[in-house]
Design a protein around this nucleic acid. Sequence first.
DNA 1: TACCAGGTCCTCG
DNA 2: CGAGGACATGGT
Length: 235
Amino acid sequence: MIYKKMLGHFGPQDWWPIFDVKSGKCEYRGCENYSDRDRFEVCVGAILTQNTAWKNAERALANLSAAGCLSPRKVCLARNLAKLIKPAGYYNQKAKKLKIFAKYWLDKSLLRLASGTPFKKGRKQNLPLCKRGMRGDFLENRAELLFLWGIGPETADSMLLYAFNRPVFVIDAYTKRLCKYYGIEFKTYDEYRKFFESRLPRSAKLYNEFHALIVAWGKMHGGKQNRAAAAKIIN
DNA sequence: TACCAGGTCCTCG
DNA sequence: CGAGGACATGGT
């Protein structure tokens, strides 16, 4: 299986990278112990890295962190958001996307409080984007996220998988490249997603690691010089 | 200098 | 629908 070959070569990736104030860089420490704040940050990162090298998104995160803007409220209030995230590119669009998403987050938080759902009444309900039990809202949330301007399927799925630990397989350019390498191509995003989800055990942990490995492989495969080496890993 | 990077939206046929 | 363009910075 390709997964095992990649895992054997690259080792566990411990996605998603979370910004560490002390070191001033993003570090990998798995997603088991995320705070609400961490989850928000993952979502912000997912938007910032749209069609952009992660390194640039990371710079933008560093600016946000330095400005104390890594909370939904601060993002909503910030006047200089576009300036802060400039290194991530498309900064005007992304500033708008972040505003919309942060407002959505706040609204959900308020709704949760207003509906009388206690803040800590079991882990699952503690997730900001949940209203009720788990199964149902996970789909509902995906639809809700997709409804927001600036959040497409990949960004929504990255949030669900990497911030909220939901079993959704994320499809990105690298994933498609990997498929193409094997002569597999589909038209729509969801066809790719179903392809993986229907062939793998339904496990957030597995999807997390697999997609992270695909990105590691994809980065290697991207450069012409390393292409042969990348091919070797999965052959 | 050209092309790419962990996409998404809008417009036009 | 599907193709084509806009959005923008930083690395190689």
